[in-house]
Design a protein around this nucleic acid. Structure first.
Lengths: 123, 123
DNA sequence: CAAACATATTAGTTTGGACTAATATTTCAA
DNA sequence: TTGAAATATTAGTCCAAACTAATATGTTTG
């Protein structure tokens, strides 16, 4: 596991809708798991797993208080990174959205396209 | 496709080892597809697809000149975002790496763990 | 201590997306 | 204009990871 692998893991932490929703919900203040579950749609098990992921990626921290566990953004750096995402994205939202409507790229698409026929790979 | 979906797509653009390698290779100056293929291990088809993805995510731009296509980072914003990744990651590299060694989280792991037995879900 | 609540962990299923091999398209040069 | 070079696109395979259902663990309060 080299530095690049770690970087990928860190970035994958952000690259999921459910996790972004979680991060949004704790952006202002720390929340318990149940509070987060209540704010975003999703069940407790799923949220718990995503929180473990975010923690493992160094994005959030957990603080236990009695039977509650409070999750919050790791530090100010992470907070400003989240802000920067929106800033940078601001310039390209239109384009990314447009790319999705047209067929300029397939990333992030689940459509299947089967247009032509090709020879089978010989064994 | 709402704003959050677009944001996820944008961030997924960064969250892949091959794409990070591509971004690294064009961080200083624009490169052709073949140049990129030469710098990172990987075949032409694969790199081409990743470049299409990066373009669709608004991370890189393409400029055609004759039979060559030069790819470069979209703008200074993207460039500084890449820099910021390293900055923020700097604080947590150790932790993320450690998480991978221990079993604190499963995200980014491909190991299978089967420890206990559970009842089958009733139909 | 037992019951209730909060959270975590597991196995299994399913889906998205990274990859390869083959082929198509585009552009230049002889 | 034909062939070669550069790039893009396709279909198919495979694996990582997101999800669900069930259960385990941990903590407080009666």
């Amino acid at each position: 596991m080299d530095y690049l692998d770690i970087k990928v893991k860190f970035l994958k932490g952000f690259a999921d809708r459910t996790r972004l929703e979680i991060l949004e919900s704790i952006q202002i203040e720390e929340k318990t798991v149940l509070q987060i579950v209540g704010e975003i749609k999703g069940n407790q098990s799923n949220v718990s797993q995503h929180l473990a992921c975010l923690k493992g990626c160094g994005i959030v921290t957990a603080r236990q208080e009695g039977k509650f566990v409070y999750y919050s953004l790791r530090d100010e750096q992470v907070k400003s990174l989240l802000t920067m995402f929106d800033t940078v994205l601001g310039d390209v939202v239109q384009q990314v959205a447009a790319c999705d409507k047209n067929d300029q790229c397939l990333c992030g698409k689940s459509e299947l396209k089967c247009l032509t026929k090709r020879k089978k790979i010989s064994p």
